[in-house]
Every structure is written in C-alpha cells, then in structure tokens.
Simulated assay, not measured.
Amino acid sequence: MPRWFGRSRSRSGDTSGTSAESEILEPLGVSDDLRLAYGRTGDLKLLRGALQAAELGVEVYPVDDARHASALSSLCMLHRLSWERDRGSADLIKAVDYGRRAVDKSPPNDRELPRHMSSLATALQEVYDSTEDEESIDEAIALYRGCLDLMPAGRGKQGEERVGQESNLANSLLRKGRSSGDGDILNEAAEHARAALRDTPDDHPMHPVRLVNLGGVLLGLVQTGHPEHLGAAEDMYTRALREFPADHPVRPGVEESLITIKGLREQFGI
C-alpha cells in the first residue's frame, strides 16, 4: 500500500520563528511527528492527536499559505490511516474530501503539490478497492501520472519519492488492468513496476516490496493470457521471500502467489 510517512517539507516554510519552542508549537509539525510515531507504534492516541493538530493547522494557516493545503493533505492521509484501521466509511469519505481540497488550495508553484496529489490518489484507490468504482481508479491513475510529470528525475530524496510514484502508478494500473483484462494497461503497469525496481537499491527496505509489485503485474499478465511471463513472475516472488524477514506480514500472500503460479504451470504444462 502506497503511503507518505516522511516529514512534510512545508514545515521549513514556517516564518513565525526559528526557536525550538516555535517548532514544537507549529501545528503541522506536531501532526507530522505524531503521525510518524503512529506509523512506528500503531498507538491510536497518537493518530487522534495527529488529526487534532492537523485540524488546528487548517484553522490557523491562511488559505493562501502553502501550509494550509499541507494541513488539508495531512487530514486526507490521517483519515485514510484511520480507515485502514477501523474500516469506517466516514473516514474514507473525509479522506477523499480533504485530499480534493488540498489539491485545490495548493498555491502556484507549491512543491508539496505532488504529495497532495498522491495522498488523494491513494484514498481514491482505497475507494476502488472497496467499491470497484471505475471512476475512482481512473482518477487515481491520472493523479499518479500528474505526480510523475511534476517530479524531476534525480538522486536523493526527490529521486526516491519519484520512484515511489512509479510504483504507485504501477499498482493502480494493475488494478484497472486486472478488472478489465486489458493487456495494454498491464504492460504499462509492468513498465512502471520495472522502472521502480530498477531504481530501488538492493539494500533498500522497499526492495522486496518492489519485487512483489512487479511479480503481481507479471502474474496479472499471465492470468490474462500471457503465460510467457510466468517464469519472471515466479522469480520476483521467490526473490522477495528471500529478502523479507521471517515474521513479515506480507510473506503469507507471497507464498500464496507462488502456489498460484505452481497451479498455472500445471495448467499451461510449463
């Protein structure tokens, strides 16, 4: 699942002061820190605190301040995290609403705009997973494409974030391609998944995830009538199993995919 767990760059745009106290009291910064802590611990109190701080940010930052859009985007992300935890439909509705508002209120040349677009796209992808609403996945795909258009290729943090958007786009295209059986869409998904894997170092914690993502796209191609990708799909999943820790929650799904591949080998006589 695509996520932004990094610290918001818009915190650096705070001109109200540079002391440690002003940083602590800055609502967006507090929300960011609580969200990151929630990501590490899963403590519901931290998630609720992050929501409250982001809500305060929407109130105190002027509409023409980039931090106003960032606070809205944080609410999009936080309500999506709440949805992932409790599956409350109201949270997913709020996530999409705040995401749209964040993109709409983002000022010209806002360097955080790709993040806002990504947060909205991820919420829309969740809508599709829950409802199979085609418009939601189409909009998510368009938003991820827009992120890539806005993010320059390069190294360092920017380059890493662009790779993440390549992977996000591949996953959305996989969803649409599987539901429609459209090989062209799945081939495009494979292109982006390969690009994301290519640009992810072997020792990066996301490397096994990127292997699984490409394996999933290739398996989707096999299941839509292209058995020539079966060996490559199996290789991706096998490599991912070697890289994931023994207690990683993704492992059972990867093992199940390998069982599926074994059955397909018997079916195709490969």
Score class of each variant (00 low, 15 high):
S118P: 00
R100H: 09
L219M: 07
E112H: 07
V58T: 12
L143Y: 06
R162T: 02
R11V: 12
R198S: 14
L36M: 11
R251C: 03
H229K: 07
L174A: 07
G99T: 09
L92E: 10
V58P: 05
V103H: 11
R7L: 03
T200N: 13
E134W: 03
V212Q: 04
G154W: 03
T15I: 10
D65M: 01
E26V: 04
A170V: 04
S12C: 05
P201I: 14
T122S: 13
G88H: 13
A90I: 15
T238V: 04
D32Q: 04
T238F: 00
R115D: 11
A170C: 09
E191Y: 10
T200K: 12
H204K: 05
S19V: 04
D104N: 07
P152S: 00
S106F: 00
S179Q: 11
R11L: 13
A121E: 11
L51Y: 00
E126R: 14
P114Y: 06
K45P: 01
T131C: 00
A233L: 01
P208H: 01
S19I: 05
L241I: 11
I137Q: 04
S8R: 08
P108Q: 11
E59K: 14
V96H: 02
G181P: 04
G216I: 00
N109F: 05
Q267G: 03
E266A: 13
P205D: 09
P107A: 07
L218W: 08
L143N: 11
Y61T: 04
G231Y: 10
M117I: 08
S136L: 05
A232I: 09
D91N: 14
G13T: 14
R194S: 15
R194E: 15
D65A: 00
G29Y: 04
S8P: 01
E126L: 06
E55S: 11
L75C: 03
L120S: 08
R35K: 10
D91M: 04
G49R: 04
H68M: 01
L241S: 11
L218S: 05
D65P: 05
A102K: 07
V96T: 12
A102P: 12
R162K: 05
L150A: 14
D104T: 08
L264H: 06
G269Q: 07
E26K: 10
E23L: 15
D97L: 03
T41L: 05
A140Q: 06
L143H: 07
V222A: 02
Y144L: 08
L174K: 12
T122P: 03
